[in-house]
Write a protein that binds this DNA or RNA. Sequence first.
DNA 1: CTTAGCACTCTCTTCATTAGAGTGCTAACA
DNA 2: TGTTAGCACTCTAATGAAGAGAGTGCTAAG
Lengths: 353, 353
Amino acid sequence: MRKINLSERQKIILGLVIQEFVEKAQPIGSKFIVDQYKLDFSSATVRNELSILAEEGLLRQPHTSAGRIPTEEGYRYFVQELMRSPDLPYPIRQTISHQFYQAGKDMKKSIRLASSILANQARGAAIVTAPFMKETKFKHIELISTMGKQALMVLVLMSGKVIQNILILKESISQEKLSETSTKINQLCHGKELKELSFLPETIGALGNDIWKIVQEDLQRNQTRATGEIFQDGWSNMLKEPEFSDSETARKTLQILEEGAIFEELFSQTMMNLDIGGVQVLIGGEGYWEELKDCSIVMARYGHPEAATGIMGVLGPIRMSYRNAISTVHYVAEIMSELVTEMLEDEIQLNQI
Amino acid sequence: MRKINLSERQKIILGLVIQEFVEKAQPIGSKFIVDQYKLDFSSATVRNELSILAEEGLLRQPHTSAGRIPTEEGYRYFVQELMRSPDLPYPIRQTISHQFYQAGKDMKKSIRLASSILANQARGAAIVTAPFMKETKFKHIELISTMGKQALMVLVLMSGKVIQNILILKESISQEKLSETSTKINQLCHGKELKELSFLPETIGALGNDIWKIVQEDLQRNQTRATGEIFQDGWSNMLKEPEFSDSETARKTLQILEEGAIFEELFSQTMMNLDIGGVQVLIGGEGYWEELKDCSIVMARYGHPEAATGIMGVLGPIRMSYRNAISTVHYVAEIMSELVTEMLEDEIQLNQI
DNA sequence: CTTAGCACTCTCTTCATTAGAGTGCTAACA
DNA sequence: TGTTAGCACTCTAATGAAGAGAGTGCTAAG
């Protein structure tokens, strides 16, 4: 990326243009800025600076006689260079942390709460994945007869994670027989890695073999999945923004949210580039995500490196309040990380699939 | 409701106006109808009939020199009196049933498929609840130690339904101790109704008592809940319709979908008034559901009376193709009912919570 | 380097006009 | 008595001209 050198005054003006444009959603003119902020230089000076900022590619004009609006480049510069360390106001932090306190140590509830808070506070669509870890160490299996030909399989991994599956058997099998099989499997496999378990133990019988195939599939799936279950909230917030007043643009964007496929990819990519607590900003799809070219996303990774981590993000129009979004996402991710850590210390399992 | 007597010709004309309006989304004039359908009477005759239909309250004019559009009353008359028994075209039925065949006997997958098919075929937002039955007969409990201070409780009801809960214990407890407790509870409670179990058995110890409280809560919740989990799909379809091109109307409607609260109430009410296989049409909120006054919903109940039943519905603008929606919902509900019945015969459990 | 002044450009709103679609009514017709 | 052609009438949507307003870029003076 080309180095951009701006004078202090240019930085101030750029910041003001962006701040005002985010609020007003209309091109910002030189006179307006000077009046609004009682600057001690004239609108003509500002005009000169604006045209330099436009030459640098940070601002542009919708047409000759309009004010300036930020380019994506301009937003990027703003986020990287001009934005002060973002902190939510104290009373808001209080309210949020209180809400989490009330939700208790319940991961599903907390994730729902997180998405609701993100959506409301950052005024956008929120997307939160459940914390997730690739983990494939077998601990324990339990087979429970429920009704007729089916049984419930409960597979516990060493981390405490629980995977469940309904088995449909060829015939009705008694609880005793099931218990016998599960005991055999437990003896053979306790504490072993998936890789070590690819052989078929011989002593577990036909039923055991059938069940073992399913166990392997489940472990496999757990290993290849990139993110946890995705929770969403606040998509209707998007429609409040004037950039989505055109219903075709709105439809396309909502369809992306509805399908959700793109986030699986985006998040698993972000997961790799980001430390826990880190915030990443994606502006206008960054020329790479065609579907997201009208949107920006502010994402953070949360969780605990030794347990499981997830991603949370806020989706909004490019003209979004990055300051507000970043500080919100940052704070909520922090709280969620604390929650994960606490649950880990209390030896409470995070989630079940 | 006031009795409306229409001549055959009036019925035909009303039907044509509705059909055309649903497609074109524009007021329909007399000349247009005559030309389009090569009717053997003149536009002047149609005009006379139209003004009679307008007097009856079935049609109205947006303004004096515009064509006619149906009133809600008009749609109701159309749905109740004029619509022929709705059957989807054979190839579409084939495609749908094939998709369900491929989904297999997996309730969650099938519900997702049902909502996707409803959304695509009826071109609206689809809402499907999981099949659900109030059932509180205790069969079996299993307690599984997973990690540290927590244990997984698996509660099986007589119908085969499985309820799970993570228990957070005061201290770490061994699997043996847990098994002992669950065995005691099983002996005491097997096959009993919730009502019979409100007393606290004395012989199950402190741990047993704690667990028992949670069992009771879970059973209670299962009894008071009115509908199963709600699945949605295709809300972005709504934005295709011109009635939602105004972004404020669109936002309000999507917000209702997002919150989803109203459907809990609407569905549990519908559940009581509708037999399995029955279809109910709610046009423009029927003057009762204020939030839904710009929408119509076509709903059907599906399932098996002895197992569990759910509701599925399509939400669209008032100007929706009721014929298409009704036949789609009817057909998909039929397939889902078959699925429930088959799973019941095969003794496969429907869902887990 | 800054700024006042000014011509210029472009958009948005308003207003009037017009074309077009569709009705309702009347009178004639079968 | 039901049907239809004819026509005046009404209302909307589209078009275009005119003017207000906002904001710029440039120039020349401070």
